[in-house]
Amino acid sequence: MSVLSTPRSAVRLASKGTPLREHVFRIALLSSLVIALGFLLMLLIYVLEEGWPRIDATLWENMPSIRRPETAGIQSGIIGTLWIIGLTALMALPTGVLAAIYLEEYADRTKWYNRVIELNISNLAAVPSIVYGILGLGIIARWLDFGFTVMTGAITISLLVLPIVIISAREAIRAVPPSIREGSLALGATQWQTIYRQVLPSAVPGIATGSILALSRAIGEAAPFLMLGAATLVRFNPEGVWSSFTVLPLQIYSFISQSREEFHILASAAIVVLLAILLLMNSVAIWLRNRYQKRW
């Protein structure tokens, strides 16, 4: 006869009801969520409502203009942003991933210089973006004489996202179980073969997710570009890395500082476009994460 069927234990197992404390706690959690999401939603509705009349083909087809805000577009900003992000990805991702491999797989943590590097990468991730702008202006634009070009912007933004790329790539590499490395090395694979053929393929989804999130943070940056002195009103698309440029956040900033109402509507429309790009990138990141989630 089972213990559970005796009346005594049945009484002991019976529900006493959820205590009040549990309810209060749950409501507190829920309301925090509602506040956070509520503000985001309000913001979205606000910009969508204001920008709605200008979300049309001319927004994409036309260049910005000071004289005709009702037909001005943001093409140079969109293209400029894509240039910067593309070039940043080309420079920051390989560098960041290689640095992460060094730190995770090769660096001897008992050596002081490796610990200094580690500590500084965490510190760099917390440096305000405007400081990177000053760095870019002083060293890249002036000292290296790269001027206010796509290259200068992309190098500056690369430096800005590099710590985040390194940190997220390290996490992805660390998440690959040591047993995979042992299995590979025990077969007579070299350390580099093990990293290249086992560790990296397993870490790619995590690295990609982290990188996209890092880049999408960079997309919203205006401060470093302001510092670099990128022109706010550029009526042409960059033709190459040595061309001058503008980016969406700068464009939005310049529209908003105009007094005419049409510019504010235009700014809202541009914000909607910026948010759409961000949302798209983040969805890709989430999709990648779910698609390639590893189970060991």
Partner: peptide
């Protein structure tokens, strides 16, 4: 000299 580990560790 090959090795087999305590917990099966096939590559993914």
């Amino acid at each position: 000299i090959g090795m087999v580990f305590q917990k099966p560790n096939p590559f993914p």
